[in-house]
Amino acid sequence: MEALTLYQLNRRIAELVTNSSTQNVWVTAELSDVAVRGGHCYMELLQKDPDTGATVAKARAAIWANVFSRLRSDFYIATGQDFATGLKVMVRASVSMHPVYGMSLVINAVNPEYTMGDLLRRRKEMLARLKAEGILDMNRSLCWNEPPLRIAIVSAEGAAGYGDFMNQLNGNQLGLRFTTRLFPAIMQGERTAQSV
């Protein structure tokens, strides 16, 4: 019985999966395990069952450094978000099969309008839920004799929203000095509730 080497098998797989039907195709997915290393962005793309939340498809993906800096900047300008776990995205990707590292998707474009639509939908759902629970306007009904000068913040340390909040706090028009304490948390994805 003659056997293939693993390298030979992986080369055959690469020949089968890397063709015109798997190159530069638009794919919708949820981001997971996003990590930036050496200027490259690595992640997993997930598809979940909308009823159960169970993962039904998963693929490793990467955005190489020569593309990532531009995509990241354009995406942030359009959405106000960085690439992060839990975001729903539409990406243009090509299948890549490496004999050592296996199959992955190489992303070369992102459609920020798709993510914006999902973010707006989630915001509307959250506001409707808060209103239905009667807590949307609770803070407006509170009367403060003195402003709270000690503030606990639950946020991801590198989050743009956290930085914006601190800038607003430190540059307030009244010149108030606040004492803050950050409680680091994951703000998007499956581990959000446990982290917060």
Rank of each mutant, 00 (worst) to 15 (best):
E2K: 05
L4D: 10
N10G: 02
R11N: 01
R12T: 02
R12K: 07
I13L: 14
A14R: 05
E15G: 06
L16R: 03
L16V: 03
S20P: 11
Q23A: 05
Q23L: 08
E30S: 03
E30Y: 03
D33V: 00
V34I: 04
V36E: 15
V36F: 06
R37P: 05
G38Y: 00
H40L: 04
L46H: 09
K48M: 06
T52E: 13
A57P: 14
A61E: 13
A61S: 15
I63C: 09
A65M: 09
N66Y: 15
V67M: 12
F68A: 07
L71Q: 08
S73D: 15
D74W: 01
I77H: 14
I77S: 13
T79L: 02
Q81M: 12
Q81P: 00
D82W: 14
F83L: 09
L87T: 05
L87V: 07
K88W: 09
R92K: 15
A93V: 12
V95I: 08
S96R: 01
V100L: 11
Y101I: 03
M103I: 00
V106W: 00
I107T: 08
V110F: 14
P112I: 02
T115I: 06
R123W: 09
K124S: 08
R129W: 14
L130A: 06
K131G: 10
I135V: 15
I135M: 13
N139L: 11
N139F: 09
S141K: 14
C143Q: 12
W144C: 06
N145M: 12
E146R: 01
P147T: 00
P148V: 00
R150T: 13
R150M: 03
R150I: 08
I151F: 07
I153Q: 04
V154I: 12
G158Q: 14
A159M: 07
A160R: 07
L169Y: 09
N170H: 04
N170K: 02
N172F: 12
L174P: 04
G175A: 03
T180F: 04
R181V: 04
P184C: 03
M187C: 15
E190T: 12
T192Y: 13
Q194K: 13
